[in-house]
Design a protein around this nucleic acid. Sequence first.
DNA 1: TACATACAC
DNA 2: GATGGTGTATGTA
Length: 459
Amino acid sequence: MASTSDGDRPWQSYHTVFTNAKAGMDGVDKEKVQKTVYEMSKGSKYFENEQRKEAFIKQKIENLRAQCAQITANDISYFQTIADKKMSELEASRDLSKIWLHSDMDAFYASVETLVDPSLNGKPLAVGSMSMICTANYMARKFGVRAAMPGFIARKLCPELIFVPPDFKKYTFYSELTRKVFPKYDPHFIATSLDEAYINVTEICNERGISGGEVAEELRNTIYEETGLTCSVGVAPNRLLAKVCSDINKPNGQFVLPNDRRAVMTFISSLPIRKIGGIGKVTESMLREVLGISTCEEMVHKSAHICALFSHSSSDFFLSVGLGLGKTDTPQFKMRKSISSERTFSATEDESLLYQKLDEIAETLSNDMHKEDLSGRTLTLKLKTASFEVRTRAVSLQKYINSKQDILSHASKLLKAELPLSLRLMGRKPCLTPRQLLNHCLYLEQMVASLVYMILIYA
DNA sequence: TACATACAC
DNA sequence: GATGGTGTATGTA
C-alpha cells in the first residue's frame, strides 16, 4: 500500500493557484513546478499565511460535510422539488437566439513587448518583477512560469527567463487599437479588461448571412492587421460559454459552440467546473470534496444537495452553470462602485513613515477621484501586516468627500486606532453610491482610501 | 454598515 | 531578498 501522505511529498499539500490548468501549460512537469514553488516558499511569512488560510478552508469544508451528513431522505425530496422548480424556470429563460464572441488577446503584455522589441522573439519572457509576474509568454509557460507567480520563483523554474517591467501606456495604446475594431461588429461591445471583450455579433451574422465562426475568423484577422497581435476567440450562445470557448484553442485560435441546446448540454457534460468564470480554487474544492462534483453536468445531478447547502444566489448560479446558461443581454451601462489606491512597501514600524505613506496614497486617491469627478462617503483603510494578514477599517461619513485633506484626516484617525503595528501595505478606498449627479459630481456611496502597508504586529 | 472572502485580470 | 493593484460580488453579523 503506497502511502501518498503529505509526509512523503509535502509540496502536494501546498495548493497554489498555479495548479489550475492554463492555456499553454500542456506538457509541463506539474510535479516539478509544484515542488519548486513549495521549496521556494516554504518557511516564508507568505507561506505561513497561506497555510493558515488553507486550514480555514479545510474547516469550512468539514463543516459543510457535517451539514451534508445531516440531510435526511425527506430533506432531499423537499430540496429536489425546489431544485427542479428552479431548473425549469432557468430552462424557460434559455435564449439561443444570440451569438456572442469572447475575444482574448494572447499573452497580451508579453506580446506587446515583443512587438515593440522584436529581439525578444523566441525567448522566454515575463512581464513583471522579481516580486510579481503579470504575464508570461508561451515559451515561458512551458517551464511552468505564469501570471501571478513571483519572479524569483519563475527564475528558478526558467533561469533564462527575461524580465521586462510593465508599461501600461503601451498596453493601453494597443488595447485601444483593438477597441477600434470591435465596434464594427457590435457598437455596444463590452470590454472587461485591457485584453478581453465580449461582442454580440447576432445582427452582423443576420445582416451578412454568415456564421459566428466566420465573423470570429474575420475579427481575428482584422485585429492582427490593425495591431500585429493575435487573439483567441470563443463563439457561443451566451457570454459565460463564450469565455470558456475562447480558452480552448489558445493561442491564435477559436472555438465555436453552436446555438443548439443538445450541443450546449454535450459541451457542458464533461466540462470541469474550474473552467467556469467565477468558480475558483476554493469553490472547486468545496464542490468536489463535499459533493463529489467535478463537471458542470454534475451540478444538475446533485441539484437537491446544492439547494440544501448553499444560498439562493449560489445555488442559482451553480444550477445555471449545470444547464449551460449565461447572460445574453448587454447591460445599459455599469457604474463604478468604488475607487482605491494601495501600495506595498517593506515592513516598518516607523509611525511617521506610515503616515507619510498614507499621505502619498491619499494624494493619489484624491487625484484619481478628481479625474473622474467622484466623491465618496465611506472610507476604508486597508492594512496588511508583515505576516500577510489583511485588515480593513471603515467609516461612513455625513458628507461626500474627495479632497486629499479630507481623505487623509479620516484615514489617519483609522490608522491611529490600529497603531502600533508594522505594516507592509496601506490603501484607502472610497466606495461609491448609486450614481447621483450633483454639481457635475458623481457621488459614490463609498470611498476606499487604502494604504496598503504590511503591518507588523507585535504581541 | 462593517468586515471578511472569493474571484478575475 | 523577494508573493501586486484595482474592482466586483457575496455572506454574515
